[in-house]
Simulated scan of single mutants.
Amino acid sequence: MGTGTVRVAESTVLASIGAAAVVAAACIPVSAVEDGPVICPFRHLTGLPCPGCGLTRAFVYTMHGDFSAAVTAHAFGPFVVVLAVVSAVVMGVRRARGSGPFALREAVTHPVVLLGVGVWMAYAIARMIVAG
């Protein structure tokens, strides 16, 4: 790295994107996501929901306090919102303490994370079967 170059860890970027998505979801009115067009390329091609289909609506519903609609849009939506907020807070605290970012590569291979991804994929497959 050259002088004056700052290396930003992947975990910091990911936490920042998650925080931005939460803030955006709080600013978007619910009416804007209720009857909008389908923008998922996978769904356009196959007619089936992808593993992330419904997350935008779930984020918006969660940030506006409609948890029933959020879970209906995507069962993992409220959980992902909480995960995004917690990640941003942890990243901010670590930065304030001078600890630096956490190692994303180690975090994503943690057994709890791998179990969560497995459950998410099972949910996605079940949604495809029901929709198909």
Score class of each variant (00 low, 15 high):
V6S: 06
V6F: 14
V6H: 13
R7C: 03
E10N: 09
S11V: 00
L14A: 15
S16G: 15
G18I: 04
G18H: 06
A19F: 11
A21D: 13
V22R: 12
V22D: 11
A24V: 10
A25F: 06
A25S: 15
I28E: 03
I28Q: 06
S31V: 10
A32Y: 03
A32I: 01
A32G: 11
V33I: 14
G36W: 01
P37S: 07
V38F: 03
C40D: 15
C40H: 07
P41V: 01
H44T: 12
H44G: 06
L48S: 05
L48F: 14
L48D: 13
P49A: 14
G54D: 06
R57D: 06
F59E: 08
V60Q: 07
V60T: 08
T62R: 00
M63I: 00
H64G: 04
D66L: 00
D66W: 00
F67G: 12
S68C: 01
A69K: 05
A70K: 10
V71D: 08
T72K: 10
G77K: 13
F79E: 00
V80P: 04
V81Y: 08
A84L: 05
S87I: 03
S87N: 13
A88Y: 00
V89Y: 08
V90T: 01
V90M: 03
R94H: 04
R94F: 05
R97M: 12
R97I: 01
R97V: 04
S99C: 00
G100M: 03
A103N: 13
L104D: 02
L104S: 05
R105T: 13
V108G: 06
H110T: 06
P111N: 05
P111D: 03
V113H: 05
V113W: 07
L114M: 13
L115N: 11
L115V: 15
G118M: 01
G118Q: 07
V119R: 09
V119D: 11
V119I: 15
W120F: 12
M121R: 00
A124E: 13
A124M: 11
A126K: 01
R127M: 15
R127V: 13
M128N: 12
M128D: 10
A131S: 14
G132Y: 04
G132E: 10
